[in-house]
Design a protein around this nucleic acid. Sequence first.
DNA 1: TCTTTATATTGCAATATTACGATATTAGAA
DNA 2: TTCTAATATCGTAATATTGCAATATAAAGA
Lengths: 110, 110
Amino acid sequence: MGITKSEHFTDEQNELATLAKAIGHPARIAIIQHLIKVNSCVCGDIVNELPLAQPTVSQHLKELKNAGLIKGNFEGASICYCLNEEGFNKIRDFFEHINTYLKNKKNQCC
Amino acid sequence: MGITKSEHFTDEQNELATLAKAIGHPARIAIIQHLIKVNSCVCGDIVNELPLAQPTVSQHLKELKNAGLIKGNFEGASICYCLNEEGFNKIRDFFEHINTYLKNKKNQCC
DNA sequence: TCTTTATATTGCAATATTACGATATTAGAA
DNA sequence: TTCTAATATCGTAATATTGCAATATAAAGA
């Protein structure tokens, strides 16, 4: 039906899913990579970096912001975006947990 | 339009997005967590662990498999699922890269 | 063979996502 | 104030995702 049955899952599961989902689009990966590449806040040039129209980029930025993966500050007329450590820490912990498991796993049949 | 303009992004960006997207659903997070929790391959009991009907679970398993995040082996009449190290390594590298950046970042304005 | 058990596939309805043109908003510059 | 530049929001079309009942398939046991 297109509705995710969020109420049947734990808060942690829903939160991790929201973070991963927000990252799950090539334009949003590109935004994250660009923010890392320039190693500073980015004011406005993100639209020029992406092969998408301005309203579309704005929408992707909003989703990353809502998920807690980026932060935006007003910088005069434009806005300054940068990565939000908090969001990335949460999802990093999840992958570290998986990584630790994969290193020590036993009884694997496949 | 609902169409992601994949052709305008790099292979790496599309691949990372596909992996993150596959993880971006609470049911699929729950499947991953269950595979870790039992610390072995899981044959069939995943359906009983989730608050979803069998066809829905089957569909989620298929998506995780297509993304390269789990593997499935036939084990008699049932199927044995476990995590696929390869897929998780790829996305882990991405997050480690981000983590390294966040630790050393300068010139942050937000 | 027939049945049972486990899993996959099909088909469809409900909802979500993606993309963008048009338009609104907001802040500085003239 | 008026103009301009930067960003957000609205509205909408096209497509994707989610979920499940019904059904198909495949393997093992009686």
